[in-house]
Computed example of a mutant assay.
Amino acid sequence: MTSPALHRVHCPDAQGGHQTAWWQWGDAHAPHVIVCVHGLTRQGRDFDVLAQALLARAAAQGHPLRVVCPDVAGRGESDWLKDPMGYQFPTYVSDALTVVVALHQAAPVGTLDWVGTSMGGLIGLSVAGLPQLPLPAPVRKLVLNDVGPTVQWRALQRIGRYLGQPAVYETVEQGAAAMRALSPGFGPHTDDEWLALSRPMLRPHAQGGWRLHYDPAIAVAYAAITEAAAAEGEQSLWRLYDQVGAATLVLRGAESDLLSRDTAAQMAERGPRAQWVEWAGVGHAPTLIAPDQLAVVLNFLLP
């Protein structure tokens, strides 16, 4: 399977609701579902390489598998929210639950795993750490890619400096180059790899050229985060983490400014006592394209 199928589901909100899109790979009826959720300004096609690698491993094992990669609200093929203050975790977690329920209605979910990069990891942490959520199956395995309950304030400030800034590019290649300059933490990639990552990030602009795929208004709620609020949120996230019953793997770029080594080490000592792996020459966040990164995830999810 070289391309995924696009699906949508209606998600409730105070303004009448919105559509959340997801990209689905593999066997649409497989009871084993792996949900992969992207970072703050990214989208579900970030996981194309990982999804195909998971399907290849599952096929070799004779194991039916669905890999589901949502576009979080305001990103990719999902609707932009009418109220920009909706771009916060209560919306994201509610939408994730709606997607999982829709998957279960389409074909029963027996085993549920989660791979989350940055924001997507915190959504997964919430889903796995709230046992009262009406999931069709508990999260069995949780991969947190360069994120944990403690998020470094300086990294949040760095992201805030470029989040939501309007940009129009004459060509896809120009847009890819601009994103590459903003994303040194993704680590080394070939030009072809970077272009493949970048194409889904761009949309035709009404006046010509190319714009970024996401709603610039996601910056509104983000800008309202204070250092004190972030610290308060950290305590809530640690409480969630301590309630996680899933086997947990933490991935870290050794140069990450968002997930510290100290936080990763704490995650190995409390809650689900995560395994953790880090890669030299990578910051925030590993893209899970390099063979060594893929191997770690595959061996954890499909040993």
Results as ranks from 00 to 15, higher is better:
78 S>H: 07
123 I>M: 14
73 A>F: 07
46 D>C: 01
62 G>A: 06
120 G>R: 00
46 D>S: 02
70 P>C: 03
83 D>I: 00
118 S>Y: 01
124 G>I: 02
114 W>Y: 02
99 V>S: 07
109 V>L: 05
70 P>H: 02
114 W>P: 00
63 H>T: 11
82 K>S: 12
101 V>K: 15
47 F>G: 06
87 Y>T: 12
44 G>Y: 01
40 L>V: 14
76 G>A: 09
84 P>C: 09
120 G>P: 01
64 P>A: 13
83 D>R: 11
124 G>M: 02
108 P>W: 05
92 Y>Q: 10
118 S>D: 05
120 G>F: 03
82 K>L: 14
105 Q>S: 11
47 F>P: 02
76 G>D: 06
63 H>F: 10
45 R>P: 01
80 W>Y: 02
129 G>S: 15
123 I>N: 04
67 V>K: 03
95 D>L: 08
90 P>V: 09
118 S>A: 07
50 L>A: 10
83 D>E: 06
78 S>V: 05
39 G>Y: 00
57 R>T: 08
97 L>G: 12
128 A>V: 06
57 R>K: 15
52 Q>R: 15
75 R>H: 07
98 T>G: 11
122 L>T: 14
57 R>A: 15
85 M>H: 15
126 S>N: 13
75 R>Q: 02
88 Q>G: 15
68 V>C: 15
41 T>C: 07
64 P>H: 11
39 G>R: 03
117 T>D: 04
